[in-house]
């Protein structure tokens, strides 16, 4: 069994030490992406399937780059729509893939629990690339890495997660990761978009975005899914921006400069104003860069690599 176990399902199930191991392992992999020849042989001969039941551009491409830069052989399966509608069950899909002797599955699925379901039923390593409203652990990890880059630490940081927490797997992974590493976490958004009893996870609920801006060192601004308006959670996008939008005017009243994160894709002018997203305190693009390094670290560790080797891989040149 590897340092992370067989699978990466969520940050809820990792220890602080395991999370730190991933972040530390990601450091040397950052450099790999800066080379002219962006490739190390760490996963040569490994076969990885990217099984995406839900549309994704950024996460899928990020995983694919991570896999290719580690020299793995990859196949993308875009199985849109639920397995039920497709006629084949998730477990059958997975067993068929496994019968082709693969090593890892990266799964994105619209149902919470799908990654764990798969992990319990196949021998391959399973990496959760987002399951329903449950977790998106590699997003949580890249957010942690980005915060650590910026502040030099996680412990003691005050991070406010702003927006549609109810439907957000990014929020849950961030909450678990930040709390385990000793940060203080607040969630902020309309009460219609905050899950029941969220405070029992150990976070503070701040009802107004102004309060979050006063309190926090960093804001993680969640994407507002446009269909939430039709579903009646908010009256209009315009009102959402007026009441909960992260705007230059609001940030100007903050006691300090806040670091701004966003998991993307952004709705400019809804949850975040363009001048904030493009401003000097935004780390939105560094997040994306770190995403590749974190995913390389996860793949590498799950394949049985040791952190020391990661250092070696980071230094060594592909010949």
């Amino acid at each position: 069994m590897t340092a992370l176990g067989k699978d990466l399902i969520g940050l809820e199930y990792l220890s602080a030490e395991q999370i730190e191991l991933i972040l530390d392992t990601a450091e040397p992999f950052k450099e790999v992406s800066e080379r002219p020849i962006k490739k190390v042989p760490a996963l040569r001969g490994k076969t990885i399937v990217n099984l995406f039941f839900e549309a994704s551009t950024r996460t899928r491409i990020s995983f694919e780059f991570a896999e290719k830069r580690l020299s793995a052989d990859t196949v993308n399966v875009a199985a849109q729509g639920s397995s039920v509608q497709k006629g084949e069950t998730l477990v059958d899909t997975a067993r068929n893939l496994e019968a082709m002797r693969i090593d890892m599955v990266v799964i994105r699925h619209q149902s919470s629990g799908a990654a764990q379901f798969l992990a319990q039923r196949i021998r391959s390593n399973v990496i959760n690339a987002g399951d329903g409203k449950h977790e998106h652990p590699t997003q949580g990890l890249l957010d942690l890495l980005t915060l650590r880059d910026r502040f030099g630490r996680i412990r003691g940081l005050k991070v406010a997660i702003v927006g549609d927490v109810l439907h957000s797997r990014v929020a849950r992974s961030n909450i678990w990761g930040l709390l385990k590493l000793g940060a203080e976490v607040a969630v902020c958004g309309p009460a219609t978009l905050l899950p029941r009893k969220i405070e029992e996870l150990g976070v503070t609920v701040l009802p107004r975005v102004e309060d979050a801006i006063q309190w926090a060192d960093a804001l993680n601004v969640l994407r507002l899914q446009l269909e939430r308006m039709q579903a009646g959670f908010i009256p209009s996008l315009r009102e959402y921006n007026r009441v909960f939008g992260v705007t230059t005017e609001r940030l100007a009243r903050a006691p300090k400069d806040l670091v701004i994160l966003h998991p993307g894709p952004m709705n400019r002018g809804v949850e975040i104003d363009s001048d904030v997203a493009d401003g000097p305190h935004s780390v939105i693009l560094p997040q994306v860069t770190n995403g590749v390094a974190v995913r390389m670290a996860v793949l590498y560790l799950l394949a049985g690599g040791s952190p020391d080797w990661a250092q070696a891989a980071g230094r060594g040149e592909e010949r």
Partner: peptide, 15 residues
């Protein structure tokens, strides 16, 4: 059930 477990699991709850 809508409560702390549904919140953690990310499943839609029935209040």
């Amino acid at each position: 059930h809508e409560g702390i477990v549904s919140t953690r699991l990310g499943l839609k709850g029935i209040p």
